[in-house]
Design a protein around this nucleic acid. Sequence first.
DNA 1: ACTAGTGTATTAATGACATATAACACTAAT
DNA 2: ATTAGTGTTATATGTCATTAATACACTAGT
Lengths: 128, 128
Amino acid sequence: MKFKNDRPIYIQIEKFIRENILKGKWGSDDRVPSIRELAVDMEVNPNTVMRAYSELQDQDIIYNKRGIGYFINENARKKVMQQSKKNFLQKQLPQVFNQMELLNINFNELEEYYREYETKGEDNETIK
Amino acid sequence: MKFKNDRPIYIQIEKFIRENILKGKWGSDDRVPSIRELAVDMEVNPNTVMRAYSELQDQDIIYNKRGIGYFINENARKKVMQQSKKNFLQKQLPQVFNQMELLNINFNELEEYYREYETKGEDNETIK
DNA sequence: ACTAGTGTATTAATGACATATAACACTAAT
DNA sequence: ATTAGTGTTATATGTCATTAATACACTAGT
């Protein structure tokens, strides 16, 4: 997996996990890849993966069975959805709208870009 | 000035300068605050401000007269506008649209949020 | 009991960042 | 000439986040 340079790797791994939960790839009590497995897969140190998992565990997104692995929590999807939506509405969107002001982009333009994006990325199956 | 904790201060200072250029607060050949002045103002070490200014100078946004100060470059606004717009279209927007997919937010909803934002922040004078 | 696979914990190495100092050089105003 | 204000350069320091290395402990299956 390729990581961006401007954010900690463990944060990007966290995001990866969250997205898979949102996409429905992993449901309640499904097992997520083991720390070592994911570390190899992503070409990263196991501790880096562990840090991501620890954070997710602290937030009750995943839970752990010692010696066995990590698993998706009961209400993980709901929780991730809420967190993401909150972040989207309170952080991301205001920044975007603010930037639009600075760049003199109105809502009609935004719609054009949206339609464009919609057309381009026509590979949306949500759940495979 | 209050800084966020998740980005280097010198990057945030850079952003501050760029935004003031976009807003029209500083035009061609206007002088920006001196390194020492801005450092005091923002309660930060002069070297931190200098780092921001150096970056901006490397990108031909500002230029320097030794012993006198830093000034806004001829085509600074145009340049910043281009850079910001490129970043907006190629980075920010795709992320937002992607996030909308994950959160099942359609374009009509987005419009609602936009109208809401439009109403709330009715203190837009662009140039004072 | 053994083994392979899992997580846990401690410590170390590295690098980015911000700060603190200080000495220096240039410019404008007096 | 002097002074005050500017930028320039260099060095040292401390802190913190991130990642890596390593040894340890638990669990299941045989």
